[in-house]
Design a protein around this nucleic acid. Structure first.
Lengths: 220, 220
DNA sequence: CGCAAACCGTTACGTCAGTCACAGCAAGTA
DNA sequence: TACTTGCTGTGACTGACGTAACGGTTTGCG
């Protein structure tokens, strides 16, 4: 086993996390082996693409039995997760922020939201969804103490850039951005935008013009 | 003006909605004209791509002054929006559902959530975020009466497929799906998945491996 | 009035992701 | 043991998308 991870395309990584989720469910149901075409059916993809994606994690299947579920899960864990787990910060404890807290609660043990920041002084030092809430002024300090490198941004668009700057100053290397705003960050910081308004407009548009698509979408 | 809309790639449509958002802001600030490279800067894209994307809406710019902001906005409205506006239904009035209601509240006048469904009997017939909440049993009836063709799905994953079936039966043609589950729907129904867990895992992964990307992401 | 400059519209190119197809191999069978 | 079967792993192909380049056009200026 060598750490030859190569560089994985974003789409491939999305599918890998999907496969893992499906595999975990299968494993809990007691499944021992699985074929690429079965996984493909569950993921709405082609068998060849599943096999190709799995090449990246470096786990070899067996021509007769397919992939051994437990071993594959372990390999994917090695490939996808940081060994000690990763702490995540949430900025913005509004409606969306609270929903996200509840949503991620105990879902992925390797990716836990451990701290919340909000500009509202009434929320400072209180527990929100089981997480301590701090003023953004203490961001750098708290983030360093908890070794947080990933943040979820759930603040209104006008405040997004300012918060992003603070996050970067606090040492964050990845941001999941829910605000409909383009964040200017250093090259080394990875930003993933999740624009719900845009997504809804997309649905509204394409739902009007017949089945103008080919396969299942499944884009994050 | 002919209705030659061609078929627009999904990515292009995402960018168009982004452009429009930027243009609206510019218009409110009193800008009259704008160049492709300015829009590109704001959107984090290349000027050539902006021009290429704008070809789809069929609005011609001027080599000397660039694009006339107001006219371009009007053209994009014609291109993107359904004339009378589109009504949207929300299914699932949990944490996420309520956050979405607040989020979309009065944001896009052409795309309004007008009705909510939730399985909780306590919520039936009550107002949630200004929208009447109904039992899913009345879905088909209510949707027809309100002419709703687009729905937002914010229910737990195990219930997603069942709700999707009901939505399809009620005549829905587009679904924005927040549940981490693959929906099986007829070819004619457009599904857009917005998987927050997947997005967070993506951030966690790519934030670990240096700046392994080129430009701004901006993928919905 | 002619020229220069800048930007738009469009075509052509390069790159990347998705699909196809085939060689290799492990198990089961006669 | 020899053969058949079906799946995996991987190279090659195709198509789509983003990027670059180029002609056309409109303005401002000498």
């Amino acid at each position: 086993m060598k750490g030859k991870t190569k560089d994985v395309p974003q789409r491939t990584l999305e599918r890998l996390t999907l496969y893992r989720r499906l595999l975990n469910a299968l494993h809990q149901e007691g499944a021992r082996h699985i074929y690429s075409h079965e996984l493909a059916d569950m993921a709405g993809r082609m068998p060849a693409q599943v096999r190709r994606d799995l090449m990246a994690v470096g786990y070899a299947g067996n021509p007769a039995r397919g992939y051994e579920v437990e071993g594959l899960i372990k390999s994917m864990r090695r490939f996808l997760d940081k060994p000690g787990g990763q702490n995540v910060a949430l900025v913005g404890a509004g409606n969306l922020g609270k929903a996200l807290l509840a949503y991620f609660k105990g879902r992925r043990p390797n990716l836990r939201i451990v701290v919340v920041f909000d500009i509202d002084p009434n929320k400072a030092n209180r527990l929100i969804g089981g997480c301590r809430c701090y003023s953004p002024a203490r961001m750098a300090q708290v983030m360093k103490a908890r070794d947080v490198r990933v943040a979820v941004l759930a603040v209104p668009a006008p405040a997004a850039q300012e918060v992003a700057d603070q996050l970067v100053a606090a040492g964050v290397q990845g941001i999941l951005n829910f605000a409909p705003a383009l964040l200017r960050v250093p090259e080394s910081v990875y930003v993933e935008d999740l624009d719900m308004t845009m997504a809804l407009e997309k649905v509204a548009y394409f739902s009007r013009r017949g089945p103008a698509r080919k396969k299942v979408s499944r884009g994050a």
